[in-house]
Amino acid sequence: QEVTLKMHQFLPAQAAAPKLILDVWADKVEQQSGGKIKIERYPSMQLGGKPPELASQVVDGIADIIWTVTGYTPGRFPRSEAFEMPFIMTNAEDTSRAYWEYAEKNMLDTDFADMKMIGVWVHGPGVIHSKEPITSVEDLNGVKLRAPSRVTNKLFSKLGATPIGMPVPAVPESLSKGVIDAAVIPWEVTSALKVAELVGNHTEFGEDALYSTTFLFAMNKDTYDSMSDELKAVIDANSGADMSAWAGKIMQEADAPARKIAVDRGNNIINLTPEQVAEWKTVAASVEKDWVEEVSTDDFDGKALLEEAKALIAKHSK
């Protein structure tokens, strides 16, 4: 038996995640199946639709495998937001391993019930890229910035900034026109967007990580069920905690070359001290509190989920 799987995602083929994670994963599966699994790759939404539809596409079988950002469909994966809380991640590898364990326990029958999960992971620490240097919370006063998720938008509103909603590809133009003064994204994304050429300052948070975004890599359930046990085993061997941790590690490693571009340009890399970060964490705590209050219902214990996420990250971060 031979199967052809259509893998669909939103980035161009040469971007870091498709090139270094998805394609590598697909090659490995093809090879381990002895050529019985063939994975056709459709980058840049070539199979049609917009990025927010990827989640539905894999459920409906429009694509067999998809990779997407959980935050593209706010409300659909509410439990994933625990891993997007400010200052919750350590490094992407360990946090991703924790995220898989958390998802296995809490999300496979809820948020992810309609898909066969291959992996879940987070990207490297988010960084503030700004025109004016930002070291203290006060420096954010009135700064117009683009933040990536529901949670980070709330965080920056509380910190005194003026968040402006826009899709990521609009960031370079908006920065160059002064529509925004800063953008909050991980390093890896900055090279494609040429952010280092548009701003002079980059704020990192030392040992801490301001935020991360969660990804999901999933397969259509019927497609998986229709495969022979032998081929299912190949997919299974390349799914789960190790796959997720590996993907997170690769994501974070992709930050380095992009960071080097900024360093080589002589940009100002601000690394906050733990004392400076403390001020940010106070505000972050209130964001957590608000989130718990907002999402908790009878069958959704926000507080417990958040605690569990923290415990798992601590457990896996050596």
Binding site: G48, G49, K50, P52, E53, S56, Q57, D60, G61, I62
Partner: peptide
């Protein structure tokens, strides 16, 4: 028709 019907659920809106 299954596939095109699935696609059409969100195609128009999107």
């Amino acid at each position: 028709m299954k596939l095109s019907f699935s696609i059409l659920k969100s195609h128009t809106y999107s």
